[in-house]
Design a protein around this nucleic acid. Structure first.
Length: 802
DNA sequence: AGCCCCGGTGAAGTC
DNA sequence: CACCGGGGCT
């Protein structure tokens, strides 16, 4: 496509109108797969082509990855340099960037730290200790949720304490002092020069409320505003957008109420309704034609979502072919479910010449990934997991990052506590308690106490005091290098001089080696970072500040704005708000992988073949949702999102038993399975082992694509909705399936020649049994694992009929 | 100060 | 089953 072609002609009439109606408020209701990204991309390209300066365009996306992808697509239409100048990113990253330059107005340093959830929880724990509250009553995660939701509704701690409704709620939940916890938490963060995720939005609101000139500056700057995934914005975000757009009202909101899946963290579908109230002359466009999926998939998804009461009328349709029916597959255990999914992928790859990367396995909770991973590994199918513990959550990475953070912001108490005695330098718990107490009493940071140790009579002995001084010197010394060294050089210096590298190098266990490698990988990341150019937004902010304000002597201006030096604090700003999905698969040589992720993480993505697993009551829909209609409807929207990820084939699976908390629980098929339109559904039987009667044999000697080779379909699925049983704990001793130890009788009856199956090693034949009960030992020849000796009382074997 | 072992407890989803 | 915090031992 060339720059001067009429790219707009590729759009259908509604899409085109949505793209070219650039002035005034616009609402685009975009059904799943309706080409939303395309419309947004073309709309922005069109704006720029019309002569709008890209610096005046703000596009808020749901992930940074989405922003990056959209930028590059726009770049292809109108040129990269213009596209690069667009302001695009998540709410959090865009406003974090702006806050860097305005923070001092709010009393924060411009190099404020962003606390992640772990940091926040740890602050809350300290606060609870300080207030003498019981962690079992005031559970840190609950407290954090409560504070978070207050902030997302723009309720300050003072308002919180004065709000009678809230106070009544807290008294009812036996947590009357919650308001004081909120206050102490907020004060601690402020003192540490730190903002949590919610503060980034909350403080942006404060900034715009209390500094009209700043508001005007940004209103004037962002003349065209686009918000993607509007259905997932919360009140705080809604107000920011409303304020920014107040002057020009060139605001375009894109969303789909049917895909709202973040109410749990304060997202509010009402924002869409408010939009109509705020801008009565809003022009609405409905994108209803689905270009992504087959008839079957669209129809089934529509049938499912029709069960929700809260929704806009909308008629999503497709002119694509009818396609295959949706497949529903039953398994007896979670492991069998994994095996069946893996087999189907294996088979489909052979039969349809498909690639790994065309498959996605979606689940409700991260914990479900284990069984799936094992099954995929068994068949040598390479996969990638999104979410779960991300790279930046690993202990060793967090340790090193804590050094970085502390160097940038000495008041970051959380980081200080993490590393003051790591690697061990003889500053123990007793000393820490004293420092902590002094800091709290004087309302200053721990580092400040350390710097001025002799001013506080803490009864710390001379030796320890020296160690503290050494630490202070070390950190200050690193801090001084921020302005003169690039991120990679300084990162390296810190990794070495802190002693981290040495400490990890000394650990020769496999975990230790892996930790060392992770640090190296982070340093590689730093290297990459310093080789990239600064984004135009960063340049812009730097120069705009310099031209509008007198030069100050703080860190921001210590270096020439034009310098190419990419510093460590810039690196930290960039990575702090990165999510796992945002991370490029940089160093991966093998891109062809099956994707495993939660449905939440799959939002916005599409795959030819989609597996939705764990369709069981109390799992999907989640146990926590089934008592409220609103929550249940959100689960259903989540299911809708999952289904509409599929282009060609959607396969749904459920297991009748599943491991949870280490023991087997029975599960019933999800109520959502009853809501499928039967006309488009079938129930094939799938073998769970690929090495005997399945994939290999079936494919052997048969031509690909022969309809007769389809497994025979049988409707074995008789869901019942009435009288759902609660989760049941099962006494597992007598049952004989893998992943549990065999009972005594089973062990005694085992004979040489018996066939067994192991979750990891597959099927095998017992060649030899030695020893005496209960210490019988068997030599088993496994199909996958080869010959192994197993102590039978520990072996988790399933005995197969001979 | 640091390590290890024990027992209690707990998994929804994310910037 | 897996993690965390507390207590006790070296």
């Amino acid at each position: 496509m060339t720059t001067d072609s009429h790219f707009l002609d590729q759009l259908n009439p509604v899409q085109k109108q949505a793209a070219i109606t650039t002035e005034g408020p616009v609402m685009i209701i975009a059904g799943a797969g309706s080409g939303k990204t395309r419309v947004l991309t073309f709309r922005i390209a069109h704006l720029i082509e019309k002569g709008v300066d890209p610096f005046n365009v703000l596009a808020l996306t749901f992930t940074n990855k989405a922003a990056r992808e959209m930028k590059s697509r726009i770049g292809r239409l109108i040129g990269d340099s213009k596209a690069r100048s667009l302001w695009m990113g998540t709410f959090h990253s865009v406003f974090a960037k702006i806050l860097r330059f305005e923070a001092e107005k709010l009393g924060y340093p411009s190099n404020f730290t962003i606390y992640d959830t772990d940091d926040s929880k740890s602050v809350i724990k300290e606060v609870l200790k300080q207030l003498n509250l019981d962690e079992k009553v005031y559970k840190p995660s609950l407290v954090l949720n409560r504070i978070s939701s207050a902030k997302n509704n723009l309720i300050s701690y003072k308002q919180y304490q004065n709000n009678t409704t809230i106070q009544a709620e807290d008294r009812n939940s036996q947590k009357p002092l919650m308001g004081f916890v909120y206050e102490a938490y907020a004060k601690r963060c402020f003192k540490a020069g730190a903002m949590d995720f919610d503060d980034l939005l909350f403080n942006t609101n404060i900034l715009m409320r209390d500094f009209p000139d700043v508001l005007i500056k940004y209103q004037d700057k962002f003349r065209y505003i686009l918000v993607d995934e509007y259905q997932d914005t919360n009140f705080s975000q809604y107000v920011i957008v409303k304020q920014l757009a107040a002057r020009f009202e060139n605001i375009c909101e894109v969303g789909d109420d049917a895909q709202s899946i973040y109410a749990f963290r304060g997202a509010n579908i009402q924002n869409i309704l408010n939009f109509k109230k705020d801008y009565p002359d809003v022009k609405t466009f409905k994108l209803e034609e689905n270009y992504r999926s087959t008839q079957s998939i669209v129809q089934v998804a529509n049938a499912v979502i029709a069960n929700n009461k809260d929704q806009f009328e909308k008629n999503v349709f497709t002119r694509n072919e009818e396609g295959e029916k949706i497949k529903v597959i039953k398994a007896n255990t979670d492991n069998e479910e994994g095996a069946k999914v893996a087999n189907l992928i294996f088979e489909t790859k052979l039969r349809e010449q498909a690639f790994n990367k065309q498959f996605a396995i979606l689940y409700r909770t991260n914990a479900q990934s284990r069984a799936l991973e094992e099954a995929l590994r068994k068949l040598n199918i390479s996969y990638r997991i999104y979410g779960g513990i991300s790279f930046y959550q690993r202990k060793e990475i967090k340790d090193l990052l804590a050094y970085f953070r502390l160097c940038i912001n000495h008041n970051d108490d959380e980081s200080l506590k993490r590393i003051i005695n790591y690697p061990a330098r003889g500053i123990g718990a007793t000393t820490m308690d004293k420092l902590d107490l002094a800091a709290a009493e004087h309302g200053i940071s721990i580092f400040t106490v350390c710097e001025n140790l002799k001013d506080f009579n803490l009864g710390i002995n001379g030796g320890t005091a020296n160690k503290i001084n050494d630490f202070v010197t070390l950190i200050k010394n690193f801090g001084l290098q921020l302005a003169v060294k690039d991120a990679f050089e300084l990162g390296n210096t810190i990794a070495i001089n802190s002693g981290i590298l040495k400490d990890l190098y000394a650990d020769k266990t496999p975990e230790g080696v892996s930790r060392y490698e992770n640090i190296q990988e982070l340093l590689n990341g730093l290297k990459d970072f310093v080789l990239q150019n600064r984004t135009p937004q960063e340049e812009e902010l730097k120069s705009s500040i310099i031209s509008t304000m007198e030069v100050q002597k703080d860190d921001l201006f210590a270096t020439e704005p034009t310098t190419e030096l990419r510093t460590l604090d810039e690196f930290m700003q960039e990575i702090t708000l990165m999510t796992d999905v945002d991370k490029e698969e940089e160093n991966e040589t093998d891109f062809d992988k099956v994707s495993l992720m939660t449905i939440h993480a799959a939002k916005g993505l599409e795959f030819p073949y989609v597996f939705i697993v764990g369709l069981e009551e109390n799992l999907f829909p989640s146990q926590l949702s089934i008592n409220s209609r609103a929550d249940l409807e959100e689960e259903r929207r989540l299911f809708y999102v999952a289904l509409t990820r599929a282009e060609k084939r959607a396969t749904l699976t459920y297991a009748t038993t599943r491991y949870r908390f280490g023991n087997i629980v029975y599960a019933e098929p999800s109520r959502f399975l009853d809501e499928l339109d039967d006309k488009y559904v079938e129930y094939p039987e799938i073998p769970s082992s690929s090495f005997s009667n399945s994939a290999f044999d079936k494919l052997k000697g048969r031509s690909f694509g022969n309809k007769n080779e389809e497994p025979q379909f049988k409707s074995n699925f008789k869901p019942k909705v009435a009288g759902k049983k609660p989760l049941l704990n099962v006494n597992a001793t007598k049952s004989n399936s893998f992943n549990q130890n065999m009972d005594a009788d089973t062990i005694k009856n085992l004979r040489e020649g018996n066939m067994v199956e192991h979750a990891q090693f597959g099927k095998g034949k017992i060649e030899f049994i030695e020893g005496e009960f209960p210490n019988l030992k068997a030599t088993v020849d496994f199909e996958i694992g080869g010959k192994r000796q197993l102590l039978l009382k520990y072996a988790k074997l399933k005995v197969l009929p001979t």
